[in-house]
């Protein structure tokens, strides 16, 4: 009983590795060709369906993505009676292969996200790499995190210190 609940989340193969003090990498393989995975990452209508999982009970207020080098994106979430925004600029856009963008909302500086898509026999390995400006920004930054989830987790951790 003890082990079943903790091993369950690992079943879908999402791996998270802290590559260094300022880098975190998430790896997962999908049963779909790279052009479809890339489409799901670069089409606002599709992106907003999975970026905010239903289980979080939260809806994106808006999601705008101008996926080209120099183009902007902006995600708006409801947060504690107000809104919270995540925004930045696409630095590299290589169709079906690679996406790089900045996360400009962080107070501690800019985090760079690099996503690579590698197709092998119809399956696609996605590696998402976050490079944070400082070690502190890794632990307390909200980049790529659900505001509700992580602000509550931060509060929880703070209250336990």
């Amino acid at each position: 009983m003890e082990t079943s609940a903790s091993s369950e989340p690992a079943a879908n193969g999402t791996q998270v590795v802290r590559k260094s003090d300022v880098e975190v990498e998430v790896t997962r393989t999908f049963d779909a060709p790279a052009h479809l995975v890339f489409e799901a990452w670069t089409t606002a209508e599709l992106f907003k369906r999975w970026w905010v999982p239903k289980s979080f009970g939260l809806n994106l207020l808006s999601c705008e993505m101008d996926v080209q080098v120099g183009g902007q994106y902006r995600l708006v979430f409801p947060h504690e009676g107000s809104t919270m925004e995540f925004f930045g600029t696409y630095l590299e856009v290589v169709p079906n292969t690679r996406l790089v963008w900045t996360n400009d909302e962080g107070e501690a500086g800019v985090t760079i996200t690099t996503v690579t898509f590698e197709e092998t026999e119809g399956k696609t390995q996605v590696v998402m790499h976050d490079l944070y400006p400082t070690k502190e920004a890794v632990n307390f930054g909200s980049t790529n995190a659900m505001p509700e989830t992580f602000s509550q987790l931060d509060e929880l951790l703070d209250s336990l210190r």
Partner: peptide, 26 residues
Amino acid sequence: EAAWIEAYRQLWAARYDELDNVLEEL
């Protein structure tokens, strides 16, 4: 740090489960 990584992993696992559904449709 391990707790933070586990929370982070859970977030991404949930997102990617949803992405599986989107990809199946595509």
